[in-house]
Design a protein around this nucleic acid. Structure first.
Lengths: 128, 128
DNA sequence: GCAGGGTGCTTGACATGCCAAGCAAAAGAT
DNA sequence: ATCTTTTGCTTGGCATGTCAAGCACCCTGC
């Protein structure tokens, strides 16, 4: 079962650097020092420094606090982190995502709505 | 500045459990064994098991591979993980917006969907 | 001059993510 | 019945995320 070498490493290095750079840029735009951001995020300033320089891949928790503190939509950060790979699919899936995320619907209602929605899509596809 | 004890712990425990449960559900729906998913994601099956049971908080990398392998938009996973803090900001209107903007629906279908959606919201409001 | 408070960074040490090896139980297959 | 395969899981250990303490530098005021 040949393990697949690792084409990941170089790529991930780049991603960390990009993500870090992005965070640093945002922080500077917001005119915050590492310690100030540290206070807001409850994350140690040394670690923030390391993350910004791409020395570490922050955890989900950390990434989210940073996004919150910097007033950057988390999605944008994730995109920078190479997470949301493309936004390509997002267009088509926007409705499904929104429905699934809708806190005001019950589970059953979500399913029902999605079922209706999908049937529409399917219908339109056949008729085209 | 008394640090606030840790209200995080319980909350995060819950989140991990929810996220894990969601992943497990998606995997089972896709009819995949832990080892199969493991092969697709290049993540060890024991660790997947632990993540699904909420014993560990997966890293970004791991979360993304899982999302890809399960064909779940990463955003949805993040939302389950409590990342995208809630769609709160786009918030209550996200679903309506998405439906209105959906190019794949006809005008009539949009109206129908919105009508159903609104009736759900209304129903829930009364019942609360 | 030199206090003091601001900046970013380095460095050990601890917590946690993550994996390889291996195990118990269930489902077939012979 | 037993052999095999496949399932999920436990465990010990290496790798990595994270922090507290402390360092070097740049200011601004005394």
């Amino acid at each position: 079962m040949q393990y697949t070498e690792e084409p990941t490493n170089a790529v991930e290095d780049d991603r960390r650097q990009m993500l870090g750079g992005f965070i640093r840029a945002q922080r500077q735009i917001a005119n915050l020092s590492l310690r100030q951001l540290s206070a807001m995020t409850e994350i140690s300033n040394p670690y923030l420094s390391q993350v910004e320089r791409g020395l570490h891949e922050p955890s989900i928790r950390v990434l989210k606090s940073i996004a919150d503190a910097l007033n950057v939509s988390a999605e944008i950060l994730f995109e920078q982190a190479g997470l949301i790979s493309g936004t390509e699919k997002l267009g088509d899936e926007a409705t499904e995502s929104a429905v699934r995320a809708d806190q005001r619907l019950t589970e059953a209602q979500r399913h029902a709505l999605l079922a209706v929605y999908r049937s529409y899509i399917e219908t339109n596809r056949k008729e085209s």
